[in-house]
């Protein structure tokens, strides 16, 4: 019997995954982190990328693509608070500006820098998706 850790992957809109795992790899802000059961308490933000979960009692890995969020680790439980969308300071700012502008009904066109930030975020997401797919291919 291998030691296992409970993992919950939830987003604001739905619960994505819940189960027992032997080993979890997450794309943390400072680089990938691997977590075994009874890890020290840790909180870190995660980048867009693939979450790899080695399921207990099964010889396979579950791959979950997430677009960023927060990872909380406690000795017996791992919680991934996944974002539902790509987030970034520029993007949030852009959305806030858009909401503000709509309220003021200002008609200034500042689309160009907003689009740039969005394109960059989409680019990062696309790369992460490709990486996730490559990892999947290697397995099969």
């Amino acid at each position: 019997m291998v030691a296992t850790v409970h993992i919950d992957v939830v987003s604001a809109e739905e619960s994505i995954f819940s189960g027992e795992a032997e080993f979890v790899v997450a794309p943390a802000q400072m680089g990938e982190v691997g977590i075994y059961p009874r890890h020290a308490p840790m909180i870190t933000s995660i980048k867009p990328g693939a979450l790899r979960i080695k399921l207990a009692d099964k010889n396979e890995e579950q791959l979950i693509y997430i677009s960023g969020g927060i990872l909380e680790v406690q000795p017996g439980i791992i919680t991934v608070l996944a974002d539902t969308a790509i987030r970034g300071h520029d993007l949030d700012e852009a959305q806030a500006n858009a909401a503000k502008k709509a309220a003021e009904e200002a008609m200034k066109n500042r689309a160009s820098d907003v689009d740039y930030a969005k394109a960059q975020a989409e680019f990062v997401e696309a790369i992460a998706q490709i990486q996730a797919i490559e990892k999947l291919r290697k397995k099969h």
Binding site: A28, Q29, P41, I43, T44, S45
Partner: peptide, 18 residues
């Protein structure tokens, strides 16, 4: 207390906004 990565302030900011 947790191990914060990269640092406490950033994680807490992000978390509380969420």
């Amino acid at each position: 207390d947790y191990i914060y990565e990269p640092d406490a302030q950033m994680v807490i900011d992000q978390l509380l906004t969420r």
